[in-house]
Amino acid sequence: MLTVVKKEFKSCFLAVKYNIMREMLNPVTFVTNVLFMILNNASFIIQWLILYSLQDSIGGYSFKQVMLLWALAATTYGISHIIFHNAYRLSDLITDGKLDSYIVQPKNILLNVITSSTSISAIGDLLYGIIIAILIGLNWEEWLLFIFFSITGAIITTALAVISGSTSFFIIKGDMIASNVNNLLVHFSTYPEGIFNRTIKFIFYTIFPISYIVYMPIRIISKFNLGLTIIVSLVTILTIYLSFAIFNKGLKRYSSSNLMSARI
């Protein structure tokens, strides 16, 4: 069992390594993509500076906490799109019948699919998150929690992308559902929790678990709470289980398009 897991991890690591090496073939495009993504994210600081010039606290968050929210959201998004970028294309792969080349390989199908491409601009997101975390001056305990929750957040985000992408196995417009879910995840996770009403918060803690990606981790980093940390960890495990279960169930309904294609 342990050997299988080890092999799968090694295989994922190699896939990501070769994806990045392939993208680095054109260094100008690579550097431009990374740098401009950092600038792109940094532009939102203007928005928050303007809003905090009107009030000292927004939704119960200080300016520093909003920056921490952005840092966590950016690293979460960055890690997810560097390692599992194809999870966000899953819907198209299913609809176009392009899973054949993954199915025939002696690897875990879902992991093989989602690790087979990398978004280079996501490296910019990851770096931006780290830069902001350095600038707001986290101490070493906060850094440990920040790294831990960046990983759990990336796993939950990817799992949600897999679940929403897998709807394409069952319904025709699954790609629209997947794109809406992924867009909304980014939109909602970059605004303080306190501005939303109770109904929205309930949704964030249940069917659309954004709270476990950013809001709860922010609370834990600000003031450590073991109980909440366990809850976030359990939710992460649950979403991993659900994503594999739904994908595998959907895979039984998959039909190939007999498309001849090469994975380069």
Binding site: L51, L54, M176, S179, N180, F188, I195
Partner: peptide
Amino acid sequence: FNFITFTLTIYIFLCLWQYM
């Protein structure tokens, strides 16, 4: 389908400005 993302984006701004 795009209408969903648009409406919820506007809703976030509504929440934000109602708070402000």
